[in-house]
Design a protein around this nucleic acid. Sequence first.
DNA 1: AGATTATATGACCGTGTACGCATATAAGCA
DNA 2: TGCTTATATGCGTACACGGTCATATAATCT
Lengths: 113, 113
Amino acid sequence: MGKRTTARVLSDQALRLVADRFKALSEPTRLKLLMALETGEKTVSELVEVAGTGQANVSRQLQHLAEAGILGRRREGLNVYYRIVDPGVFQLCDVVCGSLQDYFESRARAFGG
Amino acid sequence: MGKRTTARVLSDQALRLVADRFKALSEPTRLKLLMALETGEKTVSELVEVAGTGQANVSRQLQHLAEAGILGRRREGLNVYYRIVDPGVFQLCDVVCGSLQDYFESRARAFGG
DNA sequence: AGATTATATGACCGTGTACGCATATAAGCA
DNA sequence: TGCTTATATGCGTACACGGTCATATAATCT
């Protein structure tokens, strides 16, 4: 699987969409919420416990992720349950974690690790 | 490959690193530069042609990507060549593109596509 | 109806950053 | 030494956005 010889071509509009997807994952708070949701749907209150920030902010970040097409929303009485609807998210995290591991391991070796 | 039953656990520091990686990919200009580099290393001038923005900005965005560990830098005379050093980048783009495709296709079906 | 609980939203502040303009640095050549 | 070209950087501006506080909305119960 070498380098491409033909350029990947995406319209500016498509590029904007891809960039927005990445932007949705570019904040620790949102990543923390996603990790908490990996084991199943949770209410906003439950997520506030985990997030380490206020309820208003959690509500906003959840909305952000929902608008990005990553989360789904379901009301049940007083509670609102959020859940992951885009299965690709954790694949992305795995790839990034792998890259970071490679990155730091190579630097560790550079110092005689 | 179903849902995890045990929570993914990443320290706040690790979360920051992952978020920063995603942030590096969260701008159309930077994505455009990466796509242009997929077929091989290029000089800043060549990249300015593609980017649709000024030389100063291109230089900055390249630096941003280099500091994120995604690009490498090599000087040769007057020119500076940038190249991809993190092979995971395009895997990430592919996953995102796949997710977006699923997303819009499901919405297309909702309108009788 | 009113009281209570869960969630969302308006207003605001501070910070980060993309971009453009001008200028500085680096490298090669006369 | 200048002169030219390629790249980087300081500065200013505009804007987006995370976070907090206070308040609004939604739903349930008495």
